[in-house]
């Protein structure tokens, strides 16, 4: 009977796939045919996009500022890498195990992260990542230490698609995983759980008063974000057949934060678009001395915070609003 009382379509509008979204997901297909020589780069973009998506879940949607999100990326990478190096080279099994390991680590650290206020969270997220870095560094016999983990043997995907030297299989594998994980995240965002996360981000103090167990929700999304990051790490290990100690570095966490705010946090496409913009820029500037690159990164961060806080997606939205305003006038 309520159906007649008001129009409920605004509530469900966002759940339907917008044509622009479909167009967006044609990009990877177009990329495959148009940029055959750059498949390695495109694979990297897909992996980083998944990693960035995982940070978006915990930062953009749950509002937890993490300085050490790479901890879970690293756990996933080493988990998948070690599996493949010890004869369990099935890629999907590797992904699964990596995701579970990272998820468990995420759950355990969420117990610590959620105990404190902002400052404590910064300390814990950073501390956990640095601790793992030390650990991977010290456990040379297992992880290869600074030389990195090598000697992986990845079996063909689904038993039939071998990872070729042109990176075609790797590319479709990474893009496919990204797409599946994206669809799951998209459902989650539009579910009651996703709505309650928005509530937590907008007014954390009010949520308990409507009966929401805030910490349980945050722990759940933190765990999920960790799992996503672990899968991204596993993808990197499997597609490059190498794990560098650098997967656990602070710079990677910081860079990821930059990518996310560049794209616009709290919006799934922000994570993807930020990654595309950033990685492309990095590619074209890759001849640059790494120190200069770091300088420009820093400058970019400062400028974004001061002048363009809502990132690319914010710009797009403002353009959209302008367009609408113009159409009305």
């Amino acid at each position: 009977m309520n159906k007649s009382m008001i129009d409920l379509t605004p509530l469900t509008r966002a759940t339907r796939w917008h044509p622009a979204e479909l167009a967006f997901w044609l990009l990877p297909v177009a990329g495959y045919f148009l940029l055959q020589d750059n498949l390695v780069l495109l694979t990297q973009i897909a992996i980083t996009a998944l990693f960035c998506l995982s940070l978006d879940l915990i930062l953009g949607f749950a509002g937890i500022v993490s300085l050490g999100h790479t901890a879970f990326f690293g756990i996933g990478a080493y988990a998948a890498g070690l599996m493949a190096a010890h004869g369990h080279g099935d890629p999907l099994l590797g992904l699964l195990v990596a995701g579970i390991c990272a998820g468990i680590a995420g759950f355990i650290s969420s117990l610590l992260v959620l105990r404190g206020a902002d400052l404590t969270r910064l300390m814990v997220t950073l501390g956990v990542a640095m601790m793992l870095y030390e650990l991977a560094n010290k456990l040379t016999p297992i992880t290869g230490g600074v030389d990195g983990l090598q000697g992986m043997e990845i079996q063909p995907l689904f038993g039939s698609f071998a990872f070729d030297m042109f990176g075609k299989t790797a590319y479709w594998y990474a893009v496919g995983v990204l797409f599946v994980m994206f669809v799951i995240a998209r459902r989650l965002v539009h579910s009651p759980f996703g709505l309650s996360l928005k509530g937590i981000r907008q007014n954390v103090g009010r949520m308990p008063a409507i009966g929401a167990p805030v910490n349980a929700r945050l722990a759940a999304v933190y765990t999920l974000g960790a799992l996503y990051a672990g899968i991204a790490g596993a993808l990197l290990a499997q597609t490059t057949q190498f794990v560098a100690l650098d997967v656990l570095s602070f710079n990677r966490s910081a860079e990821l934060l930059l990518i996310l705010v560049l794209g616009g946090s709290g919006c799934l496409y922000g994570a993807l678009i930020g990654t595309i913009v950033f990685m492309t820029a990095h590619h074209f500037l890759s001849d640059m001395n790494p120190e200069y690159w770091q300088f420009w990164l820093g400058l970019l961060l400062v400028l974004i915070v001061l002048f363009a806080r809502d990132g690319v997606m914010g710009g797009v939205r403002r353009l959209g609003a302008l367009g609408k305003g113009g159409a009305k006038a």
């Binding site: 409920l8 509530l11 469900t12 759940t15 459902r187 989650l188 539009h190 579910s191 009651p192 759980f193 996703g194 709505l195 309650s196 009966g211 929401a212 167990p213 349980a216 929700r217 759940a220």
Partner: peptide, 11 residues
């Protein structure tokens, strides 16, 4: 229902 994460809010 607050922890349901698959079906959309509207459903």
């Amino acid at each position: 229902l607050g922890a349901r994460f698959w079906q959309s809010v509207g459903s």
